[in-house]
Design a protein around this nucleic acid. Structure first.
Lengths: 341, 341
DNA sequence: GATCACAATGCAAGCGCTTACATAAATTTC
DNA sequence: GAAATTTATGTAAGCGCTTGCATTGTGATC
């Protein structure tokens, strides 16, 4: 395809401008190493011929693709979509292009995607969360491809990362919940296997209970895949139990939106009959009724900073220290005091 | 970077396996043109060395990148995110990788992105909507890069496209609205400049009015950028007019969600005081209260089909006939009969 | 058993670009 | 004004892979 003899090459431009290919190349890549008038002449030739550098040749010779790969669970999730958008904008600004791959939360798929993107010549990789096969980390190291972890931050793991402490954030929210007098707590969490963010959030709830001298075993936990429907189903299950919870804490806003819908369908009003909390503070959180109490995460900031950090790494900077972004509690109407029956 | 002499090349594999580089290459690309036992030997060498083909070299030699570019207004918009996700999944299945670029609804930015992605060696391009500079279409043609248009379908424009007829869909919805007795109609539309989907939808409303012998000039139209907030603001403006509309039709679900919030903030109940409609049927539509009457668009199907069609084009098939996907009306609680004062 | 057809493999010529090095010209230094 | 330095450009050697063509080996055919 695209091979017709009409596509001009560097050589054609060089001939047209009466210079060597080296000069043309320099005009395009390091313009200030070329005298002004030759530069003008060359650029004119480029224009006239409609020349576009051949990507493969450039990559082969320069050993850089100016491409960054991102491997995320899914783009449908507003959380990642938003951060990814910011990430892409920042890359674009710096002259990089974004290669996207998704895993549907499957570690095996992620493994495959990582290798695929490296094969595709990604100069650097954005990964979500820490939890993956050590062999993969070894592979990355051997390939000398910088990788940055986002959406998570473990102070004690020394990998380059930019995110927030899911566990501590959820503990914080739990404290706010406990302060409202709640003791019978239901939890709807995303699948925790292979998803350290979800696991951390769940653990955060347990931490807070323990800190208050309460027994984490009293939690009613339901684990379910991402999705509004699933949140709704889980909510029904929780609320049909003998001693129904007075508050249901959800691993993310989407599950919480489902929980809200479930409550409504069962004729329960929130927060009078049962409180609900989310996590992430996506736009949805302020659209549902009642507005969702949740943990605010600076998605766009995370995306932008991740892009900057990754570009720096790709361009040879030392890996940055793990960066923790501040989260904050958004207390809205879906959380109320426990019902004093 | 990544240049250390430790990275094995085809040559290393060939030496290790005791064959020529040609044979190794064939093992990897056309395995059935190689005898079984040599193939096994080669693959073993590949494995042992941890060989990964060099992307640039492969692209340069093969003149294919197995990369497809998508240029969308934004990923934050659930509509595109969803379709794009399906698009990417299908590409992945076929061994292609997705290159993503966003334009923030700016035609100039789009122009730039298109050229950038082609320079990056995209084998094909996914574009949103028809509306762009003819010079760009000429450029695409000259570069011999197949491009497929999605999210829109004009029966009379002969470009490869896969989408739906925004205008007719909105006319359909408008008929349903008129059938409920509404005559004072407010419209909140996305910015129509450079966005033919938005313009078509607005035009669809006018079409339906005209078909009923009503005057399109009676419409109260507010044009605003994408976003819940903007929908809310527009709603307030509309409802403060002297003869406030009895129904507000929005160009998409996100604006409609904003309108709903605006109504609530003004103490208006939907649909008793005012009806609201959306477009796209994203998940949001069934989460808000009341659930949104909207036009259902098969996003995932569109993404998947677009991927299949584009791959076929890239691989040399004739451009497919423009494909129209069926939409359907989702009549939900946000639309009611006009209030008989 | 010689001939032919065909499958399996090797040879080597690029693909179009970047860049180290060499060269030539211009500028500065003493 | 010659030598030393700097600047601008050219030369040409790859970068690692694919693929057309040539070569070799194998079994089938007569």
């Amino acid at each position: 395809m695209r091979t017709s003899r009409t596509i001009p090459t560097l050589d054609d431009v060089a001939k047209k401008a009466g210079v060597s290919t080296a000069t043309v190349s320099r005009c395009l890549n390091t313009p200030d190493r070329v005298q002004k008038n030759t530069r003008v002449r060359v650029l004119k030739a480029v224009e006239a011929l409609g020349y576009t550098p051949n990507f493969g040749a450039r990559v082969l010779a320069a050993k850089r693709t100016f491409t960054i790969g991102a491997i995320i669970p899914t783009m449908e999730n507003a959380i990642f979509a938003r951060g990814l958008q910011a990430f892409q904008e920042e890359l674009q600004r710096a002259g990089y292009t974004l290669l996207v791959s998704s895993t549907a939360y499957s570690p095996a798929a992620e493994d495959e995607q990582i290798r695929a993107l490296i094969t595709r010549g990604a100069d650097g990789l954005l990964l979500i969360g820490y939890d993956r096969d050590p062999a993969l980390y070894r592979y990355l190291k051997r390939q000398a491809v910088p990788a940055l972890i986002a959406w998570a931050h473990h102070p004690d793991i020394p990998r380059p990362a930019i995110g927030f402490d899911n566990r501590r954030a959820m503990a914080l929210l739990t404290e706010a919940v406990l302060a409202q007098g709640h003791r019978r707590i239901g939890v709807i969490t995303a699948v925790t296997k292979g998803n350290d963010r979800a696991a951390d959030r769940l653990q955060g709830i347990r931490d807070a209970l323990q800190a208050r001298g309460l027994d984490p075993e009293t939690l009613a936990v339901i684990e379910t895949p991402y999705g509004v429907e699933n949140g709704e189903v889980a909510m029904r299950t929780l609320m049909q139990a003998d001693a129904a919870p007075t508050v249901v804490m959800c691993g993310n806003d989407v599950l919480a939106a489902g929980a809200l819908r479930g409550a409504k369908a069962m004729g329960l009003s929130v927060p009078q009959d049962v409180s609900v909390t989310g996590f992430d503070d996506i736009e949805l959180a302020r659209i549902v009724t009642p507005a969702l109490t949740t943990v605010h995460v600076p998605h766009r900031e995370m995306g932008t900073k991740a892009a900057k950090a990754l570009i720096a790494m790709v361009e040879g900077a030392a890996p940055p220290a793990p960066t923790e972004l501040p989260i904050s509690l958004e207390i809205r109407d879906s959380l109320g005091p426990v019902k004093t029956a």
